[in-house]
């Protein structure tokens, strides 16, 4: 693991010492490497933010290389603050769906023929850090549920995600099996035994303001799963499982400059008498 920025060696040394970072923080002081990669932020002119070294910063992002140094994946986001969480990145690198981590929050709820177990891959949510919420649907033996894409008239499984101040991405459903319904002469996508659905989840500035600490210590996530459980001869009525659990919020590791700016904002607001 390597991290590259246009910070000076001295500033990287201070940051590494302060936060106990042992992997390489690399100093691209003249942005030569950042330019060679073609990712320099050209929206900032050379005369802007000179003392903070604004000019020459990259559009932030991550590359993953294989054993031969070939880029096999990369992760960039239009907004500079968005990035994958450590575990989210690790699972992406390894190409694995995460196991349930003992330190990660989650919940289990029972429904008709289906048990929904949900867990976050990370122990906390941080501002704009993209974590993953993993939902495991355990389906009773001999039963199946209809997958997204099932024809009209079949109740497709759906999962909705809600949480004040949270942003959810698109849920990723696995490939379903195809069930041959010879009487109707159609194939219907179904799931049996277990389905694992993951969805990106992020804490937004509605919950956490950068540089100002935490106004609340946790966020609530509600998951609503609708499905219809069937066996070979009959179907139960469509059912819903709803579960809510709390996820701790955590402050980002914030560089000195962010704290300085935040202090300035708080002083200005105090002077204006703003609550």
């Amino acid at each position: 693991m390597f991290a590259v920025s246009n910070d000076t060696v001295e500033r990287l040394a201070d940051f590494a010492t302060q936060h106990g970072i042992t992997f390489s923080l690399l100093s691209d002081e003249d942005s030569a490497v950042i330019r060679a990669f073609g990712i320099m932020n050209t929206l900032i002119r050379p005369d802007e933010g000179k003392h903070m070294r604004w000019h020459g910063i990259p559009y932030p992002g991550t590359y993953i290389t294989d054993e031969a140094g070939i880029v096999v994946d990369k992760d960039f986001h239009q907004h500079h603050a968005r990035r994958l969480s450590g575990r989210g990145l690790l699972h992406r690198v390894l190409g694995t769906l995460p196991e349930q981590h003992a330190d990660a929050p989650g919940a289990t709820s029972e429904g008709n023929d289906v048990t929904l177990t949900t867990s976050l891959v990370d122990p906390t949510l941080m501002l704009e850090v993209i974590s993953l919420l993993v939902c495991r649907l355990h389906i009773a033996a001999g039963q199946h549920i209809y997958a997204p894409g099932a024809p009209e008239g079949f109740t497709q499984a759906t999962i909705e995600f809600h949480g004040e101040g949270l942003r959810f991405g698109e849920p990723a459903w696995p490939e379903p099996q195809q069930l041959n319904m010879t009487d109707l002469n159609i194939q219907v996508p179904v799931y049996e035994k277990e389905v694992i659905v993951s969805v990106p989840v992020t804490a937004t500035s509605e919950l956490v303001r950068l540089g100002h600490g935490l106004d609340q210590s946790s966020a609530k996530i509600t998951i609503v799963c609708t499905y219809q459980s069937c066996d070979e001869v009959s179907c139960a009525l469509p059912a819903t499982i709803e579960t809510t659990f709390s996820v701790p919020l955590e402050e980002l590791v914030e560089p000195e400059g962010v704290k300085t700016y935040a202090k300035r904002v708080e002083q200005e607001q105090a002077a204006k008498g703003v609550e």
């Binding site: 693991m1 390597f2 991290a3 590259v4 920025s5 246009n6 910070d7 500033r11 990287l12 940051f15 390489s24 923080l25 950042i34 990669f37 990712i39 903070m52 070294r53 910063i57 990259p58 559009y59 932030p60 992002g61 991550t62 590359y63 993953i64 290389t65 294989d66 054993e67 031969a68 140094g69 500079h80 990145l89 690198v93 560089p255 000195e256 400059g257 962010v258 700016y261």
Partner: peptide, 17 residues
């Protein structure tokens, strides 16, 4: 430094601000 190992290379804005 990586030899024949995989790598994660992160470009970030600043460790100072």
């Amino acid at each position: 430094q990586c030899g024949n190992r995989r790598a994660i290379v992160v470009f970030h804005r600043s460790a100072y601000w």
